[in-house]
Design a protein around this nucleic acid. Structure first.
Lengths: 225, 225
DNA sequence: ACAATAGTGTCTCTTAGACAATATCGA
DNA sequence: TCGATATTGTCTAAGAGACACTATTGT
C-alpha cells in the first residue's frame, strides 16, 4: 500500500488596513507550481517533535515568522485533495501583528484580504473557511484578537481589531466591561498614546502570563476567559 | 525516512446508570496487548475516503456501532506516543444512546465511568481528557447531548443527561427556555411517557433535519444553536 | 385523596446595550 | 477656545435563575 502523504498547512492571518488578511506563497513545485497557496509542507518525522512543531517550522522557514499565536484547527484528508495521492494535512491557524511580517526580506509573502480569495489550490478554500469560522467564533467570547496587535495597544485600537474580525460594530461600554472581566490586560503606568488632536488613550499590554505566544496552547488562553 | 504511522482513535461516549461512560477494548496485538484502550486503528488509504470514514469503519468493525454522532476532535502526534515510531492519530469522539451498544454480540466492549479511568495506554488519557472537555464545553451551549438519548425522550430525561455531562444541576425553567429557543425538538403528538405514578411527560424527538446522525457535521448542529 | 413529578407563570437579579456627561489632548 | 476622541457614569431592556403554583398520573 502506498504511504499516506502527511503535511501541515498554516492559515496565517494578520491585520492590514484595518481588515483581516491571509498570507499566501507561490508554490515552487508541482502540483500547482506558481499558484498562490497556504504555507505548508511535509511533516519531517526526523526533526519535528509533533505536528505543532512542524507547523512552527513551516512558518519560520516559509515566512520568517518566529513568534505567533498558533492553534491546531482541523485535519483534512482523503484521496482527492492532492493529485499525488491519499493525503492528510493537519491545518493550523496563526495570528500575528502585521509588523512581524518582514516584507523586505520576504517579498514572496503575499497578503490578500480574506473576503477576496480565489484560485486557491487543493482544498485550501475549505481550510481557510474553517479557520475564519473558528477565529470569528472564538473572538466573540475570548481574547483571541489581542494576538493581532503588537506588544502594546490602546483599547479603542483593540476594539477596532475585534470589529474588523467580527465584521460589525461593538458597543464601547460592553466591550470595555468584557475586556475588564477577562482580566488579561494591564495598563502601562503613565504610558499614553499621544500625538493625536484629542484626549490620549491609555496603552495596555497582555499580562505576563499570557505573553509567551509560542508556549500558548488553546487552553492557556481560554482558561482565562 | 521511515513513514509516519497514521491512525484514528475514537472516544466513544455513552450514558450508563445516569453517568457518562467510555467504551474500551482489550488490545489484541503489541504494543500493550491485553490492555484496555480506545477503539482505534490504521487509516486504510485504499478503502477510507477520509479520516472520518476511517473512524466510522473503526467504530463499526470494533464495536458494531453503525450509527452515532461523530465529530473530529484533534490530531495527536509525535515520536513518543507510540513505541513503534513517529505516529499521528486523528482523534474523533462519538456519542451514542447506550441501547445501541449490543453487549450480546460484542461482549468485548467494556464500559468505564469517565471519572474512573486509569491505566490507559499511549496518550489515550490525554485524548479522553480533550474529548471530555470538548463535550462538556459544547454541551453548555448546544444540543449535543440529545445524541446520547434514543429516538424519543422526555424533557426531564434530557435535562438529566445534560446534568450528567455538566456535573451540576440545571434550572428547569431556564433549561426548557433554552431548548425551546434552540428549536431542534418537536413534541410527538399525543405521545406521553406513561406508567409512572405521576403526571406523564411529553415525548419529544429531534426534528427531521437534525436526525441523520451519520451525515451530521459539526456545523450541522451548531448552526441551529 | 395523596404522593410524586410534569409543566407553566412570574418575580428578581444580573448583564448587555444605549445614551450621555466628563476628560484631555493638538491646533 | 474648539474639535476630536478617550473614559466613565447611569438608565433601560433583555435574559437567567428562583420560587411557587397548577396539572395529571398511579396507588
Amino acid at each position: 500500500m502506498s504511504p499516506i502523504i502527511c503535511t501541515v498547512d498554516v492559515v496565517l492571518l494578520t491585520l492590514h488596513d484595518a481588515s483581516l488578511h491571509l498570507a499566501l506563497l507561490k508554490r515552487e513545485h508541482a502540483p500547482f507550481a506558481g499558484v498562490l497557496a497556504l504555507p505548508g509542507g511535509y511533516i519531517h518525522a526526523e526533526e519535528d517533535s509533533d505536528t505543532r512543531d512542524a507547523a512552527l517550522r513551516t512558518l519560520r522557514e516559509k515566512t520568517g515568522i518566529g513568534s505567533a499565536y498558533l492553534e491546531q484547527l482541523e485535519t483534512f484528508s482523503g484521496p482527492g485533495r492532492d493529485p499525488r495521492g491519499w493525503s492528510l494535512s493537519v491545518a493550523y491557524y496563526a495570528l500575528v501583528p502585521s509588523r512581524l511580517i518582514d516584507h523586505e526580506s520576504r517579498p514572496e509573502v503575499v497578503l490578500r484580504p480574506v473576503d477576496q480569495l480565489q484560485g486557491l489550490p487543493f482544498d485550501h478554500p475549505r481550510i481557510v473557511e474553517a479557520a475564519l469560522q473558528r477565529v470569528r467564533n472564538k473572538s466573540s467570547y475570548s481574547s483571541l484578537p489581542v494576538h493581532l496587535c503588537g506588544e502594546t495597544f490602546t483599547l479603542p485600537r483593540l476594539q477596532g481589531v475585534y470589529e474588523a474580525i467580527l465584521g460589525e460594530p461593538i458597543n464601547k461600554v460592553s466591550f470595555r466591561r468584557k475586556i475588564e472581566e477577562l482580566d488579561i490586560l494591564e495598563a502601562i503606568e503613565g504610558q499614553l498614546e499621544t500625538g493625536k488632536a484629542h484626549r490620549p488613550a491609555q496603552l495596555y499590554r497582555l499580562k505576563k502570563q499570557y505573553r509567551q505566544h509560542l508556549a500558548l496552547t488553546d487552553r492557556g488562553l481560554n482558561s482565562a476567559g
